[in-house]
Amino acid sequence: MTDTSATFTEETLDIAGISLQLRRGGSGDPLLVLHGELGVPDWLEAHELLAQHYSVCVPSLPGFGTSSFPDWLMSVRDLSAWVNWFVRECGLPTPLNVVGFSMGGWIAAELATTNHALFSKMVLVGAAGLKPREGEIWDYFLNSAKDAFQRSFHDHESAQYLKYYGKDWTPDEAEQVETNREAAIRYLWRPYMHSVTLPDLLPAIATPTLLVWGRQDGIVPISSCEIYEDSVANAQVAVIEDCGHMPEMEKPEEFAKTVLKFLKG
């Protein structure tokens, strides 16, 4: 595993109308990372691998981590408007590359439908936002937080599952999980984890797009990947075998390699 201890900074900024928890590392062209509905627990190994090539920027989205949560943010579309605001106030040069995980992928897709000039390339990983052709998006809120992490990983012996989730949580960790669930519930409650209008907007996307899916994604069925693939012009697909909903944590090296190949290609 890569030693990540000295290569990133974590700070709290007043930016884009909120108090923001921001993790950054690496150098070069910016790469914006939009985390999923479970939040992001740390500067991850995958972030570090990407930071060897890019200046990686991982904001904790409003309501997640220690970021504040203004009342006006009520939907993923509000959240995508906030990301646009953040990119400008943070001074990130555009167009920039973006990687969005699950809910973060949905946010990126929303932005790409409305602004062709924001992203140079876009990677959507196990992206939410669409009603799957087959199966259903797994219901986080009829199940416990522990179940959610278990369900998100195919291999429960994988290092980062054990490090962050497959263990007894400290009270602070449990409270953070609850805080993240409270944020997710406000953005994702209904229609659950999808938009009824996004499917019709996807053909508007002109951004070169890579769709990354874990073959055994137990949260967002892989049939959602097919809708993105059919609707976004020239979208590429990379399926990671023996992997669940969080390839960045379950298969960080293969994930980073796949993403870098696309971004550099």
Binding site: F141, L142, S144, A145, E178, R181, E182, I185
Partner: peptide, 10 residues
Amino acid sequence: PKPWIAGPPG
């Protein structure tokens, strides 16, 4: 009932 059913976040 299970706690996440009795008291969902929020």
